[in-house]
Amino acid sequence: MDEFRVTKAITIKDTNTKLVIDDAKKHLKTLRKQLGDLQNTMYAHDKYAVLVCIQGMDTAGKDSLIREVFKDFNVRGVSVHSFKVPTELELGHDYLWRHYLVLPERGKFGIFNRTHYENVLVTRVHPEYILGEKIPSVNRLEDINDGFWDKRFEQINNFEKHIAENGTIIFKFFLHLSEEEQKNRLLRRLNKPNKNWKFSPGDLKERKLWDDYQACYQDAINRTSKPHAPWFIIPADDKSTARYLVAKVLYETLIGYTDIKEPELDQDIKENLALYKKQLEQN
């Protein structure tokens, strides 16, 4: 899966959005069962947490990907958090506070559906949102300069380095959708009565800012793809392929952690297994 990992500076317009893998649905069905079994082992091992960050333009398929990839997980071992417009409570803290609160505990998977990167994506396209964060040094739009973004990227890198050094395995996926495919998906939302509720006129306003968002994604990915917190750019025009690729990256990476295994029974218990079985059979 190294072909999708960002290990050097990328130009986003030159990266592929169109990839179709034959039998992707069938392969995913096998992989997600293997991932579910692996998660059970990680839960018993209880030393690593896994943070899966999923970003993408509107209609990139984030929700359905989460549903399909993690379908075979034990519900006690996975949690999903979607980060939307900050609440008043959240705005009363620094921008990373709400993300710290819901980090996965050891042995569990945490999925961020939209992530802390919204703070260098949406806010960069709409810098006026930063004024609502009540930062002492930021009182007007002119204060939100290149130095401000440099510092914010440094803070995000430090955040990820800190949690990685304390046992969280980090995956960051950018579901890379073409502008043409987004148009087709928005039209399908409008044409299907059971999908209309997903559509907002605001989607069209944001779509006009496509190039701005792509530039911000490119900069964010280039600044923050690190060995301990890599970005993977996943071609997302075909949903089945995107889901399979994400599952494959997760599984192939995690099985490389050879220390992840179920704990062994105490020797005393091992030596008396036959006795315990006999006691149960007699009751």
Rank of each mutant, 00 (worst) to 15 (best):
residue 91 L to Y: 02
residue 39 Q to K: 03
residue 136 P to E: 00
residue 60 A to Q: 06
residue 124 R to H: 11
residue 143 D to Q: 07
residue 103 L to E: 02
residue 150 D to V: 09
residue 134 K to A: 01
residue 73 F to D: 07
residue 78 V to W: 12
residue 80 V to G: 07
residue 62 K to M: 07
residue 50 V to I: 15
residue 138 V to L: 02
residue 145 N to K: 07
residue 58 D to T: 15
residue 86 P to R: 04
residue 135 I to A: 06
residue 65 L to D: 14
residue 118 E to V: 00
residue 130 I to M: 05
residue 129 Y to G: 12
residue 28 L to K: 07
residue 102 V to H: 10
residue 83 F to G: 04
residue 123 T to M: 14
residue 139 N to F: 06
residue 45 H to D: 13
residue 115 T to M: 01
residue 60 A to E: 05
residue 126 H to V: 11
residue 46 D to N: 15
residue 31 L to N: 01
residue 108 K to S: 15
residue 147 G to V: 12
residue 136 P to H: 04
residue 92 G to C: 06
residue 117 Y to K: 07
residue 126 H to P: 11
residue 54 I to A: 08
residue 125 V to A: 14
residue 92 G to D: 05
residue 127 P to I: 12
residue 23 D to W: 06
residue 128 E to R: 09
residue 60 A to W: 11
residue 36 G to E: 04
residue 139 N to S: 08
residue 133 E to W: 03
residue 99 H to Y: 15
residue 135 I to N: 05
residue 26 K to I: 00
residue 114 R to G: 03
residue 25 K to L: 04
residue 27 H to L: 09
residue 132 G to H: 08
residue 133 E to L: 13
residue 103 L to T: 01
residue 48 Y to M: 15
residue 83 F to R: 05
residue 146 D to R: 11
residue 52 V to R: 01
residue 67 R to I: 07
residue 20 V to K: 14
residue 39 Q to D: 11
residue 113 N to A: 06
residue 76 R to D: 05
residue 83 F to M: 03
residue 95 Y to D: 05
residue 116 H to C: 03
residue 27 H to C: 07
residue 101 L to S: 07
residue 47 K to G: 07
residue 99 H to V: 11
residue 115 T to I: 07
residue 72 D to R: 08
residue 73 F to I: 02
residue 112 F to W: 00
residue 89 L to N: 00
residue 103 L to D: 01
residue 112 F to Q: 01
residue 107 G to F: 11
residue 87 T to G: 00
residue 146 D to V: 14
residue 79 S to R: 07
residue 135 I to H: 03
residue 81 H to Y: 11
residue 65 L to P: 09
residue 127 P to N: 10
residue 118 E to T: 00
residue 120 V to N: 13
residue 67 R to P: 01
residue 108 K to H: 10
residue 106 R to Q: 07
residue 43 Y to D: 13
residue 74 N to Y: 09
residue 88 E to V: 02
